[in-house]
Amino acid sequence: MASKSPERFESQEALSAAQRARIERNRQRARALKEARIVHRPPTNDASDVREISVGKTRALDTGGGFLLEEEGADAASAPRAAPPAPLVHRTEQPRCLECDRLFPQSYLFDTFDYSVCDECRDEEAHALVTRTEAKSEFLLQDCDLDMRSPALRCVRRRNPHRARFAEMRLYLRAQVEARALAVWGSAERLQAERAARRQRRERTEQRAAARRLRALRMDVRSSLFDRTHAPHDHRFADEVYDADADEYSRTCLDCGHVQTYEKM
């Protein structure tokens, strides 16, 4: 067994020392990064100790348990949330409920939509929400009717449940949209008449489009059934035949069967 030369043994020993030094440096660097990422917090059950963190456009809550809890609510992905409005304590400033005719200091519909209905009279069906698209198509309103006409209708913003990358939906109070439609069109009868007129125009447009499609389909069928033998060509007539009763002559094309009748002077 050949023995290692002194030069080779010294190079291997120096290389091993360099490797050990590099490993130690990497270990120290990893330890420093780990200590920098650790959040030291005393154990507590107080919910106010939870920190709020912004991850892109989404707000999340650092629970301290190793995971982030996405914050719920309409304004979670928007700018910092404003503090809820304070209740109107003085009775002279309190609104009167449109349903029960009682004064109330604060309610969801009043704070959100400026609609004077207390929380006790709030009903999910009577005070339903409609999207901006539904408000424009069903009540025949335009953007200026919702935003520019005084007072501008207030709305709440929600994430689109069908398309996450789409813009946020704007939801309006249906009762306020109905009132705005009556103000724009003057009466419910005029609104119904305009709906019927637009429905008829839409049906006529659909019928014309269907007729155009049917006509194009018929042309395609006719072109596929076109007999090339009936295309324009030079006739090759057979011998003429004389009809004594009609006193006329006729001859038939040998290719297409065309019959030509004529008289002789």
Rank of each mutant, 00 (worst) to 15 (best):
A2R: 01
K4V: 04
Q12F: 13
L15P: 00
L15R: 02
A18Y: 00
A18P: 04
Q19C: 09
R20D: 11
I23V: 01
E24G: 00
R25V: 12
R25M: 12
N26R: 14
N26Q: 14
Q28C: 07
R29T: 07
A30G: 04
R31A: 08
L33M: 10
E35W: 01
E35R: 11
A36G: 05
A36P: 04
I38C: 09
V39S: 07
H40N: 05
R41M: 02
P42T: 15
P43D: 12
T44R: 04
D49T: 08
D49N: 05
V50I: 13
R51P: 01
V55R: 01
T58W: 10
T58L: 12
R59N: 00
A60Y: 11
A60G: 01
L61F: 10
D62M: 08
T63S: 10
G64F: 08
F67N: 05
L68S: 06
E70C: 15
E70I: 15
G73F: 04
A74D: 15
D75K: 09
A76S: 05
P80T: 15
R81L: 08
A82N: 12
A82I: 12
A83Q: 11
A86V: 15
P87Y: 09
V89M: 03
T92W: 13
P95R: 03
T112Y: 03
F113D: 00
S116R: 06
S116P: 05
C118D: 11
D119R: 06
E125V: 04
A126E: 11
A128W: 02
L129V: 11
V130N: 06
K136V: 03
S137L: 12
F139R: 03
L140N: 06
L141D: 00
D143C: 00
C144S: 07
C144V: 08
D145N: 02
M148E: 11
R149P: 00
R149G: 02
S150T: 08
L153D: 00
L153Y: 09
R154M: 10
R158Y: 06
R158F: 02
R159M: 01
R163Y: 00
R163K: 01
R163D: 14
A167S: 10
E168F: 05
R170E: 14
L171V: 10
Y172V: 12
Y172R: 09
L173S: 02
L173Y: 01
A175D: 15
V177E: 08
E178I: 07
R180A: 03
A181S: 04
A183E: 14
A183M: 11
V184E: 13
V184L: 10
S187D: 10
A188N: 14
E189P: 02
R190W: 05
L191S: 04
E194K: 03
R195S: 01
R195E: 01
R201E: 13
T205Q: 15
T205D: 14
Q207T: 12
A211R: 15
R213W: 05
R215V: 08
D220A: 11
S223L: 13
S223M: 14
F226R: 14
F226Q: 12
F226H: 07
D227N: 11
R228V: 11
R228Y: 03
R228I: 09
A231Y: 14
R236M: 07
A238M: 06
D239A: 13
D239H: 11
E240D: 08
D243I: 06
A246N: 02
E248T: 01
S250C: 06
R251K: 14
R251F: 07
D255N: 02
D255I: 13
H258E: 10
V259Y: 08
V259R: 05
Q260V: 15
Y262V: 06
Y262L: 03
Y262K: 09
